[in-house]
Structures are given as structure tokens and as C-alpha cells.
């Protein structure tokens, strides 16, 4: 966990106090998440932890990361955690009214071994990170190099320049991680979510005039906001992941109101939508190598347009994958015929 460093403005004591409190809050929350016996409580606290982390990123003047952390780390992952709990450990979420049973206590010896292994793993990660922070060059690392190369990057926002141009493979691999997670879910659930099979939930949702009206009003606005975030990435914090999450929220809202857009897609189109972002990077990478450029290097001229196109495809795939996650987990709970 990167600790917020109060290095931004020395001398401002109120900010230092706030940052220290934030550090304590995050550490305490992390400890609580690890030690709480109730999985449900752990999931809820994890959402709070994600929001706290977003605040920490804001304090570190990294609004891009803060946006992604709040939207994905707190929002969507939180929803997915709660949904997974409901599917795989129904007793834990039923604990809203009745206290959830604590996990069966494991034998002391086993627990000690686990603690030692976990501590060793944590130390293996924490020590190099601490050393790395200690040895950070005073000039701000690669900041100067990035600033120097900005005119060639095709965009005006350094974070987008790094993520989509200078280190495009980072974004590529992140999309790959999402895809792998989806494959894992498919392996557990056996199949993609579809309207066929037990409990057609789309048909089971009762029509609701107010929700219908809200959905019809909100979804176009969300699509517009997603497009805005995608376009904004050229100049300011924004981009494929932020845009994709907003788009996924629109899809989830539609789904909750009974529009089974994603499940109605033919199987091939469904798979293609999942793969689109990753495949676009793959084609771009192979193409750049074949053309004699470096891996993922854009052809000269119109770099900004190339980046926007690649980001648009990535955002679509990210949105589709996240929404499909939600729908797959949500559907697994609804195998009983009871309406809601």
C-alpha cells in the first residue's frame, strides 16, 4: 500500500495532520478488514477502504488514479465482492438481519503457519517498495523525460501519454487482467450469462413506471458522460477505464430495469465484445512490429487519433466485461423463481 506522503506543501500543518489521519485511518481499516470474522463486514469495509485510498491518491495529486480507484476499486469491486458473497456464501449476506456465523476456527498450528507465510509475503513486497521510495531520485524520477517527450505523444495530458503511448503495454496488460478474471468467472459458472436457462430474470422484473422513466433519463446521460471522459483523457484526468466504468454502470442500470441487452447478444458477438479491447492492442502491437517500429509504437502523424480509437475500443470492452461480471453473479443468485 503506497502511504500518502505529506510532501506536497511543507509548512502547512493542517494538511500534514489531515494526511497523517488519513494514513492512520487507512492502516486501521486495512487491519480491521483482515481481522473481522464476518466476510460481509469485510466486504463493506473494503469499499470504505477503496474510497479512503481514492482520497489518498487525491492528496498525492494523482486524480487519474483516484478516479479509477473510486470507480473500480471501491464501486465495482465492492459490488462484485458482495455479489460473490451472496452467491458463494449466502449465510454471510443473510447476516443483514441475523448475525453471520463466524468462520470455523482453524487449528492454532495452521493459523500460525498462515500468519508467518502472510507476514513473509507482505515483507517481501513492503521492503523493496520502501527501499524504492527511499532511493527515489530528487528530480521526480521520469517526470522530466515525460515532459520532454510530450510534444511527440499526440496528447496533452502526461498520464494518458504514459499509459497509452510511452508504456502502452501497461494498459494492454491491465485489460488482459480483466479478461483473465472474466475467464475465471466463466470457468466457475460454466457458461456466459444468457436469457436462456433457469429463471429468466429479465422477464421476472416487474414493470415500474418511475424506474423506467429514471432509466430512460439517466442512461443517455451516462453514455454522454462516458464519451466525455474518453475524450477528456487527451487533456485532463480521464480515459478508457473511467469511461468504461461509467458505461458499465449504464449497462447495469438497464439490466436492473429488465433490459437484458448483454444476454440477448449472440454468443459470437458476446465473445467478440469481451475481446475487442485486448485484440485491438494485439493487432496494434503486431502491426507496429511488422512495420519496423518498436512494440506498440504509433505510426507518425495522427497519434492522438490512434490513441483515441484504441481507447474507445478498450473502454467498450472494459464496460462490457464489468457489466458481464455483474450480470453473471447477479443471475446466479436468481435461480429461484421468486420475483426479487
Amino acid at each position: 500500500m503506497p502511504a500518502p506522503t505529506p510532501a506536497a506543501m511543507p509548512g502547512l500543518d493542517a494538511e500534514l495532520i489531515f494526511d497523517l489521519l488519513l494514513c492512520l485511518f487507512l492502516l486501521g481499516l486495512a487491519l480491521r478488514i483482515l481481522t473481522t470474522p464476518q466476510l460481509y463486514q469485510g466486504a463493506i469495509l473494503f469499499i470504505a477502504f477503496g474510497l479512503g485510498m481514492a482520497l489518498a491518491w487525491t492528496r498525492l495529486a494523482a486524480p487519474d488514479v483516484a478516479l479509477a480507484e473510486a470507480a473500480i476499486g471501491a464501486g465495482l469491486v465492492g459490488v462484485l465482492l458482495l455479489d460473490s458473497l451472496r452467491v458463494f456464501a449466502p449465510a454471510a449476506t443473510a447476516g443483514l438481519r441475523e448475525p453471520a456465523p463466524a468462520r470455523p476456527p482453524s487449528p492454532t498450528r495452521h493459523r500460525q503457519l498462515t500468519a508467518i507465510v502472510l507476514l513473509a509475503a507482505a515483507a517481501t513486497v513492503a521492503i523493496p517498495i520502501t527501499l524504492a521510495i527511499w532511493h527515489l531520485p530528487a528530480g521526480g524520477g521520469l517526470t522530466a523525460a515525460v515532459a520532454e517527450a510530450m510534444p511527440e505523444s499526440g496528447v496533452d495530458h502526461p498520464v494518458t501519454a504514459v499509459l497509452l503511448n510511452f508504456r502502452g503495454y501497461d494498459t494492454w496488460l491491465e485489460i488482459g487482467v480483466l479478461l483473465l478474471a472474466m475467464l475465471g468467472l466463466l470457468a466457475i459458472h460454466g457458461d456466459r450469462p444468457s436469457t436462456a436457462g433457469s429463471g429468466d430474470q429479465a422477464a421476472a422484473v416487474r414493470p415500474d413506471a418511475l424506474l423506467d422513466w429514471l432509466t430512460r433519463l439517466l442512461v443517455p446521460v451516462l453514455v454522454l458522460a462516458a464519451g466525455y471522459l474518453l475524450w477528456l483523457g487527451k487533456f485532463a484526468p480521464g480515459g478508457a477505464f473511467q469511461s468504461g466504468v461509467v458505461l458499465a454502470a449504464a449497462a447495469i442500470l438497464l439490466r436492473l430495469n429488465g433490459f437484458a441487452l448483454i444476454e440477448r447478444l449472440p454468443s459470437l458477438a458476446w465473445r467478440a465484445a469481451l475481446l475487442l479491447g485486448f485484440a485491438a492492442f494485439l493487432v496494434h502491437g503486431i502491426g507496429s512490429l511488422l512495420a519496423g517500429r518498436a512494440l506498440l509504437q504509433y505510426p507518425p502523424g495522427h497519434v492522438g487519433s490512434w490513441i483515441l480509437a484504441l481507447e474507445a475500443l478498450a473502454a467498450f470492452s472494459i464496460a462490457f466485461t464489468l457489466a458481464a461480471f455483474f450480470i453473471a453473479l447477479n443471475r446466479a443468485d436468481r435461480s429461484d423463481p421468486v420475483v426479487h
Binding site: 418511475l210 424506474l211 429514471l214 432509466t215 433519463l217 439517466l218 446521460v221 451516462l222 442500470l253
Partner: peptide, 8 residues
Amino acid sequence: LAGSTSCY
């Protein structure tokens, strides 16, 4: 808009 929708 988002708040009232999710609350509803």
C-alpha cells in the same frame, strides 16, 4: 439523478 436512481 444517479443518487435518486440508486436510492430508488
